[in-house]
Structure formats: C-alpha cells, structure tokens
Design a protein around this nucleic acid. Structure first.
Lengths: 212, 212, 212, 212
DNA sequence: GATGAATGAGCCTTCATTCAT
DNA sequence: GATGAATGAAGGCTCATTCAT
C-alpha cells in the first residue's frame, strides 16, 4: 500500500491502456513493443519494468476490458429484477463493451486461444485463463436462466447449453461487426437478437401474452 | 520432350491440405513455411511453385473449408422443403463443417480480418474476400427467413438482422468449442441452439401448436 | 564438323543472343535463367545443355560483342592507311559497338572484374580473360601509335600509356552514356574526343598545319 | 535516465567504412550484411539501427568517397591559378582518390547505374543520384575549360563535350587499373594522359611555344 | 535431346528482449 | 528507475541447378 506500489500499478495500467490504443489502430498482431512504448511516451525498455514480456501486455489489455465489463454488468444486474431484463442487459452490455475494442480484442482472444489450446504440455505461463472467464460468464447466465425458469417466465431448457448459445451470439456478432462495420447495423441487429433470444427462451404462454 | 507431368491443381490442393493439418497441430500463426513443406513431404521451395506466398496458402486452406461447406449446404438445401428444416440444417452443417477445423480455421479468419480491416487502402492482394462470403451467407439465410414469413411459419422480423444473429451463433459456438472442448457438449448445445432459434423466429400460433 | 556440332553451336549462339536481349531489357544482374530461357523460347533446363552455368552465359554474351567488334575493326583497319584515320576508327567503332549494349555490357564487365580480381586463389573457372582482351587491344593501339610516330605524324610518347588512355576514354564514355543518355550527345562528344585525342598526340607541326 | 550515449553519426560512418573494407576484400556484390557486421564488430541487427537497408550502406560508402574527393578538389582548386594546372589537378586527384577504392567503388557505381537506369518509374528510393554528381563534375570542368579559352590558353571547343571526355578518361583508367593492376603503370599513364589532354585542348601557339 | 518440377542453400530483414549507463 | 543501443534467432522468399521423365 506504499505510494511506490500504487504508482507502479498506475503506470502499469497506463501502459496497458496505451497498448490498447495502439492495438485499436494497427491490430494487436501488427503492434510492436516500440509502438506501445511510443504511445505510452516511455522508453522501449521501460515496458519491461512493468511487464515480463509481450504476452503479459496482451493479458493486461485483455483484463482491462474484462474488468470493465464485469464492473458494468455487476451494477446493472443489481438494479434489475426480471430475468428477461437481466438477459437483455447482459447481451447488450457485453456486446457494447467488447465492440468498443472490436478487432484487437478478438485478435487478443485468438492469441490466447492458440496459446491455451496448444502449448498445453509446455511451460504454459498463460497469464490469463480464458476458459475460466467464459466459465464464470456461462455460470452467471445459466443462473439467471434458472431463475427465470423457476419463476415460470422461461421454458424448461438445458440452461448451460442455452447460456453458451447466448454468449456465442455476442461473440459472433462481434465477428461480423469487425468484418464489415458498414454492412452491419448494430442497433437493429442487437435488438432483433435480444428479441429473438427472449422469444426463444420464454414460455409459450408468455409469448402468447406478449402477442396481443 | 517433357519432364515429370504433374497435376498442378491436385498438388496445390494436397499442399493446402497439408497446411491445414499443420495449422491444426500448431496453430496457423505458429506454422512456418518449412513446417508445411515437411508435412507435405516436399522441399521448402516447392511450395512457392504452387503459391505466391504465405498469405495465399492461408487463403487456399480457407477456401478448402468454405468450398466443402457450400457443397454440403447446397445439396442439403435442395432436398429440404420446410423453412424450419432449412434453418436447422444451415446451422448444423455450417457448425459441423467449421468445427472440424476449429482453432486454425478461426485463426485464419482473424488473419483475414486484420488484413482485411486494416490495409484496406493499401495494395490489398487479399486472396479471399471474407466480407463477400459473409454477405452471401447472410443473403441466403435471409431469403429462407423471408420464405418462412411468407408461408406464415415465421413471425415478421428484420430478416437481415436475424440472419446475422444466426450466423453469429455459429461463429460464437465455434469460439467456445475452441476454448474448451471438454466443457462444451456439442450435440446438446447445438440442439438447444436450433430449438431456441426456431422458437425465437416462429409465429406464436406455431409455437403454441408445437406445445402440446 | 558433323551437322550435330554445327547445330549445337548455332543454338548455343542463339541462346547467348537471347541472353543479351534480356540483359538489355532488365540488366544482367536482374536477369534470371528463366528469363533467358523464355526469351530463347526454350525450357529452363535446356540452357544447361549448352552452358555449364550462369557465368558461362555471361561469358558467351560478352564474347559475342567482342567478336563482333574485332571483326569490324579488322576489316576497317585493313582499308585504312593513315594512322590518324586508324586511331579515329578504333575509337569510333569500339564506342559504337559497345554502346549498342551499354549497361548490360558494363555490368558483365564488372562481373568479370570482380571474379577476375578476387577469387584468384580459388578454382577460377573464369571463362573469359578480360585481361587478355584488354592487352590485345592495347597492343594493337600501341602499334598504330608507333607507326604514326615513325611516320612523323605523332609526337614521341609512351605508346602503351597513351593506348591505355585512349581505351580509357572509350570505356569512360560508355559509363556516361549509361548514366544519362539524355544529357549526353554521342555524336558531338565522340567527335570532340577524337579531335582532342588526335591533337594530343599529333606533332606540333602537324597541328599547326592543321590550323590554317 | 539515459542509456549508452552513442554518436550516431560517428558510428554510422564507422560502419560505412567497415563496409568499404569488406567491399575491397570480397567485392560489393559478394558482401553480405553479416560480413559487414563482422568487420564492424557489431551484431548483424545493429547495422539496421544505422541504415535502412543494404542499398543505403552502398550509398553511404559511395558518399564517403565522393565527399573526400570533393573536399580535396575544393581546396586544391582554390590554390591554383592557371587553367592548365586546374585541369591537371582534377584529373590527378579524382583518379587518385577513386583508385584508392578501385573495384568496389566501380561495382557500387554499377549497382547504382542498374538501379538508376531501370526502376526509374518505380519507387526509386535511390539514395544517391549519380547523374547529379556527374553533372556537377562536368559543369565544374567545363567552366575551367571556358576560363582557359577566354584566357586564350585553350583552343575553341565544345566545353561540355570535352569535359565529358576528360571524365571519361578518369573512369576508364580506373577500369583498366582494376582489371590488371600489374600491367598498368599508374604514374606513367596518368602523366601521359594529362599531357595528351592538355596538348589536345591547348591552342597551337601555346603548343608550339611548349615545343622548344 | 528437352523439359520444368523440385530443391535447399543462402540472404535480407524484423523485432522481442537484454543490459550498460 | 529509465532508457535505447545492441543483438541474434528466426522466417519468408529467391533462384541457380539438378534430374526424372
């Protein structure tokens, strides 16, 4: 808790943010350590005072986004009551947060996947455990679904599978957003998606009631 | 008068397949030209007799998968009548085809994204136009949706947006599959997804009828 | 003397000529074996039926030019009487012949120099002995100069040194021609050079006589 | 706050000099980046801290020589009065300076020619403009010739053409020097050349006066 | 004889990381 | 603590040459 440590953390954060900015401009893969240093207005070598290596920066940048998302989701969920609203907000918020970083973010994802999937036997220094993050998210979604089922709002279903499906939608939308920003109308698509998902999981009575 | 006669197209294909195999083992990004050559049991330089450069191999490997998917989809769709069945098969088949290549495939995707998104103004020799592929797929899905709406089977909706959503689901599922094969039960999830999607787009009467 | 041998020689010559044509277009250094094969309208491998390796083609192309020059010079010199005319024709003809091949020719020269100067201890396969060619030329010039001195037309001088100087002029002019064809008016420069050289070597009386 | 402080310009120069040394040993064309690094006693990568690429090293090495020549010529010309002396010193000095680097220098020349002649329309990053260098030199010589004509020391002539001829001699002498150091007696040849040139351009009266 | 498919040595260049100052 | 000069492993690609057909 000494000021030194706080400073260290702060600067580490600043560098990670700078990294994110460059990623957004040039793509994570095309970003060199020297680019990050320049963006952070520090010396190339200084980065290594705060990060062990390149991978660790990716990890930090990644965590930055995830942390922000979790923060936002947490407070949003606390304020809401109905499971429908909760599902809706989880789709919306995660999409919106992630889409702010788009391409770079997904590149980083892929970096982590490759690293995570392969290299299993190697000395996996894996800074970030994507699997765990997904797992957490999946559990959270599943529990909301369960909540809805118990409340008679959602139909019976394999909650884990449906949770996966919902997450898949968000990830997949990002892909398409990245691919062609112009051919893709965020607002409408997300609305339609939310609506489709809700219709897909709500009880028929509910659906029918929604109808008139 | 003539030396070894080689079916250039066939060999090109073999090399692309070899490339795919290495991609699956080491990840596209960690695959070196020399690895591909070794896998294809040819000399390093021979690759360049069939491909202009690294990028072109990625493109070929990518095309291999897409072509296979299109072939399968085409024949499947021709045999089916109901729009529900068509939607179902499109989800299933594309998921199944793509999942056979998993990680590498997505890595290649990302490679193309980065290249496609940035470098737009540059001399983009981009062998493969991802955007167009998506566009085609989206159109195809949308027309099936329309067909269903006109037949009174699907509710009214923004067909393009929903098409995007459906594609998003497939892509997103792949992501999760890659991330953690074990935590992810393909068969169940895909079933649930198909079911959810169909419930989400079918008319209520239909849903209700489906109920008993 | 069997027809086979004649054919071989003829084809060898054709290839060397084709090589020269490509050299003129792309520069010797940027010319690949495959380019030569294409220009000669034969297969890449066929070249090696007529030449041991790349270097030998350079040698052949070089010889082609030198042979042409010697032929022209020989017949021209036989027809002329006065040493002044002989000097004049030697400068003119050699310049004109060499300038037809310009850049490539000099590149080939340089190739031979490098090879000739260095690699001395190595297994010098040196196809062409530039030194000898120069030596021959120098001797020829020197003997004309001597002839002129004995006839009282040229002043006393170190004939070998002056011969070298004259050759130097031709070579040097080629350099400038190559460097900037447009800034360089052949006709005028060569005339002036010939005139300067003659004035430089003729006896004063002669010069004075030339004056009125 | 700051690491090793290095005189970038100085080191750049040292590397260029090291390059020149290797060129002299192995020929520019046969010199690899790693050879230069070894000679300069630095790492291979370090070269690229000071030069963008191979071409730029050639350019630097070339400039080194040209700069030295210009420096020497400048001071020499300032001290001299008579146009004859000036012409003499220009021939002598440029020959002597260039001959110190001989083969490599000419190879570099040729490298620049090829690059300069072809590739004209392409993105020619051409570090050095040979044409301009020649042009400058030619102009300088021509103005001395004019000076001599106006002073009544030199006969009337096309000064540009004769300037070209004089430069041609220097270049050409270098060629022969390179070709066969032993068959070529510098001292004598240069003297004879200077004498021939002067006789060739001086007025007859002058020549006659020189005679007795 | 002719051919071009196959090859791999070899080169330039990039860039993450180290470390002397 | 901060820095950037130094580094060398690594990789994509070229091209002369070989050789099976």
């Amino acid at each position: 808790m000494s000021p030194r440590i706080v400073d260290k953390d702060k600067k580490r954060n600043e560098i990670a943010l700078a990294a994110m900015r460059v990623f957004a401009r040039k793509g994570a893969r095309n970003t060199r350590m020297v680019d990050i240093a320049a963006e952070a207005e520090i010396g190339k070598g200084t980065i290594y005072e705060y990060f062990r290596n390149r991978e660790e920066i990716l990890g930090a940048a990644f965590s930055l986004v995830m942390a922000e998302m979790e923060r936002k989701l947490g407070s949003a969920l606390r304020e809401l009551q109905s499971p429908e609203e909760k599902i809706k907000i989880m789709i919306r918020l995660s999409y919106e947060t992630l889409s702010r970083f788009t391409a770079d973010f997904l590149e980083i994802f892929v970096d982590f996947w490759s690293a995570g999937i392969r290299q299993r036997e190697q000395n996996s220094n894996q800074t970030i455990d994507l699997k765990t993050i997904y797992e957490t998210f999946r559990r959270q979604l599943a529990s909301i679904l369960k909540e809805g089922i118990e409340a008679g709002r959602f139909r019976r279903m394999d909650t884990t599978a449906v949770a996966s499906a919902i997450m898949a939608i968000v990830d997949g939308l990002l892909l398409q957003l990245i691919l062609d920003r112009r051919a893709f109308d965020d607002a409408v698509v997300v609305d339609q998606v939310v609506s489709m998902v809700l219709k897909g999981i709500e009880t028929e009575i509910h659906n029918a009631g929604d109808m008139k």
